[in-house]
Design a protein around this nucleic acid. Sequence first.
DNA 1: ATTTTGTTTGACCGACCGGTCAGGTTTTAT
DNA 2: ATAAAACCTGACCGGTCGGTCAAACAAAAT
Lengths: 214, 214
Amino acid sequence: MQENDIKNAENGTDERPLTRIQKRNREAILDAALEVFSAQGFRGATLDQIAAQAGLSKPNLLYYFPSKEAIHTALLSGLMDIWLAPLHAMNPDGDPRDEIMTYMRRKLEMSREMPRESRLFANEILQGAPRMIEGIEGDLKTLVDTKAAVIQHWVDAGRLAPVDPYHLIFSIWALTQHYADFDVQVRAVLGPGHDPFAEAGNFLEMLFGRLLAP
Amino acid sequence: MQENDIKNAENGTDERPLTRIQKRNREAILDAALEVFSAQGFRGATLDQIAAQAGLSKPNLLYYFPSKEAIHTALLSGLMDIWLAPLHAMNPDGDPRDEIMTYMRRKLEMSREMPRESRLFANEILQGAPRMIEGIEGDLKTLVDTKAAVIQHWVDAGRLAPVDPYHLIFSIWALTQHYADFDVQVRAVLGPGHDPFAEAGNFLEMLFGRLLAP
DNA sequence: ATTTTGTTTGACCGACCGGTCAGGTTTTAT
DNA sequence: ATAAAACCTGACCGGTCGGTCAAACAAAAT
């Protein structure tokens, strides 16, 4: 007989620890799926494309994930936390302008270093967020509500120019993610010899600097 | 015998004038295609969806347009002019701040009244603009270059706060289109009882007012 | 009234889609 | 060494994809 009831101490579900091969292939699949989903959207992407990108056969993909849907869900849920981290890090006890400027800088940095993730989210929301609306109405709204209240307190205390906290946050999202999501357009318009993200950094420093000045 | 060589005076191609039925059905198809393409992207959309939305049979679609690709192209080329119109209307002889604020207001108005068109463009650019890169590198870049030069002259003449003209235009695009493209997210975060576009109007008036103040 | 032209559709095609499965191969545990 | 477990694949399945076509139908011109 065989000891079979392995319990994972972290979550109580019965999961065996991942083998080297499982770890390597799951990562390869998720990376390939990020590449393809972010460039094609969910419906536009195919398992064959993802398999080819990952260097695996299609049946082998489905050995590690039960369905196309499951791969997509795994990507989105894994990314939600990463995406919210910079906003989560905004400190109510810090200096108002510093905190908001730091948040903006971190979001721009994420756009530069994780453009595929940004485009994955953009694709999903553009298409009505059918597989993400729960997380948006839940975790995301809760976090934004919390941080918007913090900003509102700063405004009420006269420590910040009077701005609508929600639309301030939206403006940071819009401006920073634009450089990842519309990268092709930005580069085509600017032409060669430009560093869009570096220029955006300077521009956004000035824009938000002026917006938040008392 | 029949007089058959009808020449269109406008472009020299031999096109008969459109029938009432042709006009009606072409419009129905393009409207349905806008609905579906903007919500699903090119690859994600199907001819059956478009046909159903238009109230026509699939073969009948292909009686009016030779292919899925042709419908998409017709939509994009028809929309490019509409999309560029507000920027085109920016008057070099007008008051700098008025001209830029008016441009921002028109873009926000377009986001409110033509969200499907905005999402169609967003989908295309997100996915690398494979069917639009020509127009972006051509007409769009040319127009932006021209207007950026105008803005730069305003800055050089001290009539406007010193801003990078290209990124000023990008910021207007990002902020106004965000409310159309990410409508689902914006509404989910704000919750019920909000008019996102009205609030955005107020917020952007203040934001660009402060940015452009001398 | 009839012929010509324009419009519409059901049936169908090959290609591709997500997903399955039996069986082979490699790795790991004993 | 060998048995068990984990890993991988070619062949295949039913459904959907974009697109075709012959034939029926409707509108307009004569």
